[in-house]
Amino acid sequence: MQWVGSACVLTASTGLGFYKAERLRKRVETLRSIHAGLQLLDTEIAFSATPLPRAMARVSRTCTPPGAALFEEVARALEARPDAGAGAHWEAAVLRRCQDLALQSVDAEVLVQFGRTLGLSDREDQRKHIRLASERLAVQERQAAREAAERVRMWRSLGILGGAAVVVLLM
């Protein structure tokens, strides 16, 4: 009985540690893919002035996984209700997806601020806003990568060792 309990505690704490580590890693991946997605969006706007519903759909098809979901959601929302404005759809999608994309509130803030300018001005202006958001995302991405490098191992070890410590204390 005691052994079974110990195994449960150990599994739970190890799982928690790995989950924390995974979130850190996923944040980096998400930021990277959204960053790449914005570059694709920039190309769509700069070279063919593609309207946002189509541009977002195209980006979601070519973008890498975690971030693609965000673009896809915005594309779908825009297709259904274009008059509500791209900014509103973008903000709603960012806030809804924040949790599963492992984004922190700072990251979400950068994206939401970018969304407020989306589709509201001419091409040149749109490109400026995309560039600005890209730069800010790059900063977040570097910071997230640093954090991940430092803490992924820590969380994993902490999970296993913490569980082991609890087991030892209880025994």
């Binding site: 706007i45 002035a49 593609t50 309207p51 946002l52 519903p53 541009a55 825009l78 274009p82 008059d83 509500a84 404005g85 791209a86 759809h89 989306l118 589709g119 509201l120 001005s121 001419d122 091409r123 202006d125 749109q126």
Partner: peptide, 14 residues
């Protein structure tokens, strides 16, 4: 502005 958003599919630049 809403009408314009609808007209331009939320993409004034287009």
């Amino acid at each position: 502005m809403h009408i314009l958003q609808g007209l331009s599919q939320s993409s004034l630049y287009a």
